[in-house]
């Protein structure tokens, strides 16, 4: 077994930062595009995204501190001074993806906290007094969220010493996965805490029910699309490495049939994280898409779909972070 310099804290961080960044980006773009459309439901979705976004990002950032050697030494030796040595990250900036990433992440967390604040009041509405601030933070949210989602892939991807990661497709894959897990996070929150959407018989509640379902339909179908892109990115990622010779081809074989991480990858990432949710979602999206039937996914199913997408996103980070460290350049 290889030594894993980056373990669970980093895996958890990559996953959580991705969910948060995705939720911020999706919420911002829904807000900017939809405003109060669909009887205010776009606004509600933006609100769930906004309230969600900072939490995983802050939790993930908190986790990653556990992986710092200085933090571990601080715990082992009870040296208070070492606990806060990570401050050094913010005393400088250079071209290291980790340096740029830390600053972007800090900005993104700051902006997302403010953004969440503009949605905090229960009675917040598209046209309340915080509209200007909210819109402004949504405008910065789109690029910041995308930057956080991408930089994690760039950080892993630039090192020839880690051929499994050393692919530009990795950043793309992480970006798409972040967006898709961000959507899943929003839909999960909405399914858990949102007002009950009207079922087929709920037409009594004016238009609210139908429009809510329409908005969820849009999110669910864009999720299907995102998962489609993710499948494409995974195919690209594997092709890029496998059709290459030397280190990349050698490294990627760890997730191909017969490789040490093959089961985890094909079952955890592809089947659970991609195929399962896409099949369930299609089962509900296709009738609406083709036959204009009312879209009604039962809440429990909605939660299952979101949960498996999130599990898949975590498994992707897990497999990638492990595989990168279990393989290295060939020869010496």
């Amino acid at each position: 077994m290889q030594e894993l310099n980056w373990g669970l804290p980093v895996i958890g961080y990559l996953f959580l930062a991705g969910v948060g960044a995705g939720a911020y980006t999706v919420s911002s773009s829904v807000l900017l595009r939809g405003g109060g459309g669909f009887g205010g439901d776009h606004f509600n979705i933006a609100r769930f995204g906004a309230l969600l976004a900072p939490i995983p990002m802050i939790a993930g950032t908190g986790m990653i501190i556990f992986e710092l050697g200085t933090f571990q030494a601080a715990v082992a030796q009870g040296d208070i001074g070492l606990f806060f040595k990570w401050i050094n990250l913010f005393l400088t900036i250079n071209l290291s993806p980790m340096s740029i990433g830390s600053w972007v992440l800090a900005l993104c967390i700051l902006a997302s906290v403010l953004y969440a604040y503009t949605f905090l009041a229960k009675e917040s509405a598209p046209d309340d007094d915080k509209k200007g601030l909210r819109q402004g933070l949504a405008w910065v949210g789109v690029p910041l969220g995308i930057a956080v989602a991408i930089y994690t892939g760039v950080m892993l991807g630039i090192m020839p010493s880690r051929p499994f990661w050393n692919s530009p497709v990795l950043a793309l894959l992480f970006l798409i996965s972040s967006m898709s897990t961000g959507v899943a996070g929003i839909l999960l929150l909405r399914a858990m805490f949102g007002k009950a959407h009207a079922t087929a018989t709920g037409e009594s509640s004016s238009d609210g029910g139908k429009s809510a379902d329409r908005a969820t339909y849009l999110l669910a179908s864009s999720d299907v699309l995102l998962i489609g892109f993710e499948v494409l990115a995974i195919i690209l990622f594997i092709m890029f490495a496998k059709l290459n010779i030397g280190n990349p081809g050698y490294a990627v074989s760890i997730i191909l049939p017969g490789g040490e991480l093959a089961t985890m990858f094909w079952f955890g990432v592809v089947v659970v994280g991609l195929l399962l949710p896409v099949l369930i979602e299609l089962r509900y999206v296709v009738p609406t898409l083709l036959y204009q039937q009312p879209y009604a996914m039962p809440r429990s199913i909605e939660m299952v779909v979101c949960a498996v997408v999130l599990v898949g996103g975590f498994m992707l980070r897990y497999v990638v972070v492990l595989a990168g460290q279990m393989t290295g350049p060939m020869g010496i």
């Binding site: 710092l68 050697g69 200085t70 030494a73 070492l82 040595k85 050094n88 880690r162 350049p329």
Partner: peptide
Amino acid sequence: DICIGCKYCMQACPYDVRFINPNTGTA
């Protein structure tokens, strides 16, 4: 004095010559 022990350099070195010194927590 500056190193925070992030281990990024340990990933980047193609020769695996770096480690975290358990006494200081730094590379």
